[in-house]
Design a protein around this nucleic acid. Structure first.
Lengths: 199, 199
DNA sequence: CAGGGAGGTTAGCGGTCGTTAACCTGAAGG
DNA sequence: CCTTCAGGTTAACGACCGCTAACCTCCCTG
């Protein structure tokens, strides 16, 4: 996958700023005028790029879920034949990268899903479900003791743990990205091991 | 502490329904008419009990933070002289009880804080900070290896793990409250142990 | 060099929402 | 029995918000 070097399109600028604002003040708490102002144009100008405010949220949430799922599938493909534990580690690593690099999106991800049109919400839910099932399978490969319901609960809980990055204070106060990533990774593995420990 | 048997006051009914609605659709996504309808009166009738919509949210959030902090202090007092691990277990147990019994409140707790007036938000933040510091101290009692910043990050992450209960599907699909509580407790301990493991 | 589309602008409409005003009612109490 | 007041009601106001309409201005292209 070639790294993008070209300038972001206006659509992408808008999506990025909208994500930040939605994460900060909630979908209903942000007006289109503010989103426009954040990219240097005025409110109604946004309608040259999106059908409406809902469409921005939909594109963000579908994008997030799709990106997580695609990334996970990619990692699973690359990790063919390696130890089960390494596969799980790779999933964890991918999720942590995302949680640390796109904190506004992580916030939106589990906060504004209900604001979507029915069809979009179903799509996002389906992508999320697939992502979860990838984790559940990888987890049970490592810990066959875990029954499926317990494994699913454990995965959701670890998502909660990894997605706590927005609560870890502003970027400056963190002990450094690498340190935080390592800590989160260890804790996730520890939580999984404990979940399987005394089943 | 005597268990309440008397009927809930109207104020309490309103707060409970408001919490549920705010958690479901967000603070800005719920109208006062809906909150009124949920308790059988009409919108403006609420103003006999609260100064405004903001006041309901404020009372909810301050109540949550205060309740968590008070409960934790109580548990610390009762657990005087016992092993450090047992103290940490008691904190975890208290938080899990809260997360499982008051899921709407847990959702509000880290989602709508920014909608508060400055003074209320500062109060809530202060209560939350005290609560976190109680945990950090208890955690470092068990794992003295953990430096304070790492301990604080670990605590926030475990909160994320424990507060994931709203994502665990509707109550019916859970494997039973006790089972879930035990699983969460084990995972929290496992995450803490791993955080301290290779410091 | 016409012209047409991409991407802006401002004005304004229609609906919603929080809040207030004015009024009503039933029960308690001297 | 009259008063008072807690706790409702409906009507309506003002602000805000998403969105559309109408118009403008480059820039690209045949």
């Amino acid at each position: 996958m070639a790294t993008r070097t070209d300038a972001p399109t206006r659509r992408e600028q808008i999506l990025k700023e909208a994500a930040r604002l939605f994460a900060e003040r909630g979908f209903h708490g942000v007006g289109v005028d503010e989103i426009g102002a954040a990219v240097g144009i005025s409110g109604p100008g946004l309608y040259r790029h999106f059908a409406g405010k809902d469409a921005m949220l939909a594109e963000l949430l579908v994008g997030i879920s799709g990106q997580l799922l695609t990334g996970a599938k990619q990692r699973l493909k690359e990790a063919d034949g390696v130890a089960a534990g390494a596969v799980l580690d790779s999933l964890i690593e991918g999720h942590i990268d995302f949680a640390l690099d796109d904190r506004p999106l992580i916030t939106l991800h589990d906060r504004e899903l209900d604001r979507l049109r029915d069809s979009d919400r179903k799509l996002v839910r389906q992508l999320q479900r697939q992502y979860v099932e990838l984790w559940v399978a990888a987890l049970r490969e490592v810990y066959p003791v875990l029954a499926e319901p317990a494994a699913r609960s454990a995965v959701h809980s670890v998502f909660g743990l990894l997605n706590s990055t927005p609560h870890l204070g502003r970027v400056g106060s963190l002990p450094g990205r690498g340190t935080t990533a390592t800590l989160l990774h260890r804790m996730a593995r520890g939580a999984f091991a404990a979940a399987a420990g005394a089943e």
